[in-house]
Design a protein around this nucleic acid. Structure first.
Lengths: 258, 258
DNA sequence: AGAGATTTGTCCGTATGTATA
DNA sequence: ATATACATACGGACAAATCTC
C-alpha cells in the first residue's frame, strides 16, 4: 500500500505526500475521484480526522476539491491567456509562438465564454480616493465586467473606475454591453482625455470571502489580480482593478524587439 | 464579546469572520499577536478544535501565521515591485508615478537584500525539452538566482535555461555572480544570438512543497510565477522560470504611450 | 541553568448533520 | 427509503516550542 512513514513526518503529511505523488505521476488524473476516506483508512493505519487533515493540505494546495456526498476529485486546470498588451494598447492580439508546455487552448464565445456587465456611480472612499488624489467623497463611475466560462463558473472580473465629472454628459457615462470594448485609452481619447502613461501592478493573493463567493473560487485557489492606472499628464484618469481565478488564467506579455 | 452567530453559518467560520473583521479594521495590526486559543475559547462557547479550524481559515487566507509556543500573529505585507520591462529590455527602470495606495518601499542591497547564485548543466527532460523543441536528453545550462530579503527570508528565485551547445566556449558558460546582470537579450547578443521576441506568461498558484521549503513560504501564501521565453527567429534560445513569494512581490509594467 | 507555565501542534475516538447516489 | 461519503463539532490526551521566573 503506502510506503512507511519517514521518521518525524507528521501522519497527515504522510497522507498528503502519498496522494500528491500519485497526482503528480498521473495515477490520478484531472477529474478522477480519489479513494474515499474509509478506503484511505484501510491504506493508512490512521484515524479519519488524520486522513481528512491530509486531504485538507491538498485542497489548500489547489490540487483537489471535495464534494459532499460524491467524493474527492483531482482538479482540472485549463487556462485562458489574457494578453496584457492587447488589453492595454490595441484590440488586436499579436501572439508570439505559443508555449507547447502550457495547455492553454484559446477561448472565445464559442467555448461557453459569457460576459456580465453592470455599472453604477459610487463614492470613491479612502483608498480609491487616495489613488486618484481626489476627495474620498468624489463620485466615480464604476463599470464591472465578469467573465464566465462554461455556465456559472467565473474566471475573471474587472472593475473600471473613472471620475464621474470627467465623463458625465459623454457616451462613457452609459457604458455599453458590447464586448470586446475598445481599449480604455481609446475610449478616453473619444472624450478628449489623452492618456500618456499606463502603469500596471500585478499581484497574487488569496481571495477575500466576497471574491470567493462572487467568483465561486474553490478552496485553496489564489487569485491573480492587477491594478492599471491610466495617467494623463500625471493626473490619474482611470483605474481598473481586475481579479482572475488563478487556476483559470495566465497573463501574457509578448514583446517584439525588432 | 462576539456577535451572535448568523443562522446557518458554521461555528468555525464565525470565529474566522470575527477575527478577520478585526484585522481589516486594524484592531489587530500587522505584527500584533491575536488572542490565544484558550482566550478565544472564553470569547466563543466553542471547542478548541473549532477555534483552531477558524484560525486555519485565516492562515490559509494568508492573513495570519502561527508560531508554536509563541502565539498567532497578523502577517506583515510590504512588497517589492519588480519591473517587467526593465527586467526584459533594459537595465534602467523608468518608474511611472508610484501608486500611493500600494505600500511598496523600493528595496535594494542597503535594505538587507542579498543574492545567492548557482549554475549547473542539466538534462532538459520532457517538459523543458518540449518547450525548447529539443531532445529531452539535450543539455541545458541552468543558472539560479535567489533573492533574500532580511536574512534567511527569500522572496524571489529565478532560473535561466540556455541550450548548452549555444553558449559552450563563451563567457556565458561560466556565469558571474554580479548583480544586476545585463538583460538576457544583451547577454545573448554578446555571443551572436539576436533575440527577436520575448514572450512572458505570468501565473499564480500555490507553491510546491519543494518551493515552500526552499523559499520558506508560510502556509496560505501563493506564489507569483512567470516563464519568459526568448526567441531568435522562431527558435527558443532561452527560458527563465521565476517564482516570487506572493505577499512579498508585485510585478510592474509601465508603458509610455507618447 | 533549570523548572514550570504558556501556547500551539498532533492525534484519537465519537457523534451528528447534510448532500449525493 | 437506504446507504454512502463528506462536513461539522466535541472532548480528551500528549508533544513540542517558547517564555518566565
Amino acid at each position: 500500500m503506502s510506503n512507511p512513514r519517514p521518521r518525524g513526518l507528521p501522519k497527515y503529511l504522510h497522507v498528503a505526500d502519498y496522494l500528491r505523488a500519485q497526482i503528480d505521476d498521473s495515477t490520478y488524473q484531472p477529474g478522477d475521484r480519489l479513494p474515499t476516506e474509509p478506503e484511505l483508512m484501510d491504506t493508512f493505519p490512521y484515524d479519519r480526522a488524520t486522513i481528512r487533515r491530509g486531504l485538507a493540505v491538498l485542497r489548500n494546495e489547489g490540487l483537489i476539491t471535495s464534494e459532499q456526498g460524491r467524493g474527492v476529485f483531482v482538479r482540472d486546470a485549463t487556462k485562458t491567456r489574457y494578453d496584457l498588451m492587447s488589453m492595454l494598447i490595441t484590440d488586436r492580439s499579436h501572439p508570439a509562438k505559443p508555449d507547447a508546455a502550457y495547455n492553454q487552448p484559446p477561448r472565445g464565445p464559442d467555448d461557453g465564454l459569457s460576459i456580465e456587465h453592470t455599472y453604477e456611480v459610487v463614492a470613491a472612499g479612502e483608498k480609491l480616493g487616495a489613488a486618484f488624489e481626489l476627495d474620498p467623497r468624489s463620485e466615480l463611475l464604476a463599470s464591472t465586467y465578469t467573465f464566465f466560462i462554461s455556465g456559472d463558473t467565473a474566471e475573471y472580473r474587472t472593475v473600471a473606475y473613472v471620475p464621474y465629472p470627467l465623463v458625465i454628459d459623454t457616451p462613457l457615462a452609459t457604458p455599453s454591453d458590447d464586448w470586446p470594448q475598445p481599449p480604455i485609452k481609446d475610449q478616453l481619447a473619444g472624450v478628449g482625455v489623452k492618456v500618456t502613461t499606463v502603469a500596471v501592478d500585478i499581484e497574487s493573493r488569496m481571495p477575500t470571502p466576497q471574491e470567493s463567493f462572487d467568483l465561486q473560487i474553490p478552496d485553496g485557489t489564489p487569485v491573480l489580480s492587477d491594478r492599471r492606472r491610466f495617467l494623463a499628464d500625471d493626473r490619474v484618469v482611470c483605474i481598473t482593478d481586475s481579479v482572475g481565478v488563478a487556476d483559470r488564467i495566465v497573463y501574457g506579455l509578448d514583446l517584439n524587439l525588432q
